[in-house]
Design a protein around this nucleic acid. Structure first.
Lengths: 276, 276
DNA sequence: CTGGGCGTGGAATATTTATTCCACGACGGC
DNA sequence: GCCGTCGTGGAATAAATATTCCACGCCCAG
């Protein structure tokens, strides 16, 4: 029973545990690697889970997780768990308590800011869930699924959303073209018959986006608008209108709801097109 | 089997649990009273202890504690424990499974998809609030506030985040340079002494981002990593590490938590710099 | 006192959970 | 292309843990 190249003693603190984890990470076979990843991402759950639960989370059989514990230097899962159970400090039982705690820090502290953004995002999502216009969404999907190339238009704050859409659509093999953002390039001539435009803008609305939408609608191309309210200047040019309620924190917008909407749109369009 | 004067259903939340506890406290025989006292004082240990351990703590035999659980309305200790384990970290282990089914099941009406993305975002944000590392966040802010130009590195999925950061930082008059994303330009030579790098990447990690971080750290520049887990290859090059838990489904990631973190970072850095 | 009900502890049992073990299969070196 | 090694998953087993059950004794009412 030689201790080949493995460290014999088990980590005694959570910190040691992390180090050990990083240490072994590189040369680990597939399944054990999965364990390491999952455990690293969910360390806090070790204390309150069973082998079976963690193994399921990591998508490995329990025996793999068992071996993993041993490689880390523990005699088995129980020993590893004991480490985390002992170190278990009540943490923060539930979301609202924790949020209060974060906010309580001096105003403007990074943690307090984080709390505000998290809350803003959550509120936005909740509102979106309540008041989403399903009909408009379905219409938008139909339009985009039927079109040739999709033109994604979004400047400034909307650019992160449109660029993400471009990425996701590409993954789904949907032809899409990203306009706006960096190079201020004029792609107007790229609009071709059969194409559709997905225009994204929020107050204060960007002129370029509105013009693009206007141009497309003048040429008879369908325009899907993703914007903040029904009074948006985009509305007059749009064939389908999706509004997302976004709660701002100061001048800063969380984008959570917008991205959720954009993703739903993208995936729906992607699957609809696959079928065709 | 009459339910004399006892409430039949078990508490469903920690709050309900506390109420129930206070409610029964008064008329309780000696041993059960001891249980109640001990449990009230050590509620947080329930999630990570065995019946025997808690019983020992309360100085009662296990069977007494057992009866106590039942009086509270639970079927037994296990059920009570489950309440606290779930409260500690809400189960999204089965979440990715849910999304898989959604795709496989061909179900996805656009509205259903939207609901899923909303839920994923909400979950991500809550988890972020619970397990954010305040210390690391503060460190990251200090580093970035003290630096010259900030280099934002994020390809693919991370690009929306870094581009949003670029936008916000510009608004706050913080000198920042956006790398990666579209033009595949090599900006490596742009790194200058006194600068700092904010690198963003998630599994599967993009090679370019890691190289950039490596380069910076080799030159002695501080690197802040915004990534998904502690096993990220970015970790070895980073001066400060921020991890965000994001419910993730192939290419479809809600990004809510990531953006919340990024925004908090940007605003904190912006205000810190103003003061200087 | 004395009988009945209730609280009690501990021992027996059921159940869950961890851990070991081994046969199979892939992979790489010879 | 064969053999040895190593990774793997699942089934068998061991251990821990929860849960039930019952006999005893205290206390109070009659």
């Amino acid at each position: 029973m030689v201790e080949t190249d493995e460290d014999m003693r088990a980590p005694a603190t959570v910190e040691e545990f992390r180090l050990r984890l990083a240490e072994v990470l590189d040369d680990l076979p597939r399944r054990l690697r999965q364990c390491a990843d999952y455990i690293a991402a969910n360390t806090e759950r070790i204390a309150v889970s069973t082998v079976a639960e963690l193994a399921a989370g990591a998508e490995v059989p329990p025996s793999a997780l068992m071996r993993f514990c041993q490689i880390l230097g523990f005699s088995g899962f129980s020993e590893m768990q004991r480490l985390f159970r002992d170190a278990y400090s009540p943490g923060f039982p539930d979301y609202s308590t924790r949020l209060k705690n974060l906010r309580a820090g001096e105003a403007g502290s990074p943690a307090a800011l984080l709390a505000e953004f998290v809350e803003a995002g959550r509120l936005s999502l909740e509102t979106l869930a309540k008041q989403a216009d399903e009909e408009a969404l379905t219409r938008a999907v139909d339009i985009l699924a039927a079109a040739g190339t999709l033109h994604l238009v979004g400047y400034r704050r909307a650019f992160p959303v449109s660029s993400y859409l471009a990425y996701v659509l590409e993954k789904m093999a949907v032809p899409a073209m990203l306009h706006g953002g960096l190079g201020k390039l004029e792609h107007r001539h790229a609009l071709r018959p059969g194409d559709a435009v997905l225009a994204i803008t929020f107050a204060p609305y960007s002129e370029e986006t509105i013009q693009m939408a206007a141009e497309a609608s003048a040429r008879g191309l369908p325009v899907v608008a993703l914007t903040d309210r029904m009074t948006s200047p985009l509305v007059r040019h749009a064939t389908a209108i999706l509004t997302v309620p976004e709660v701002d924190f100061g001048a800063f917008r969380s984008l959570s709801a917008t991205i959720a909407m954009a993703m739903a749109l993208a995936v729906a369009v992607g699957t609809a097109r696959e079928v065709l």
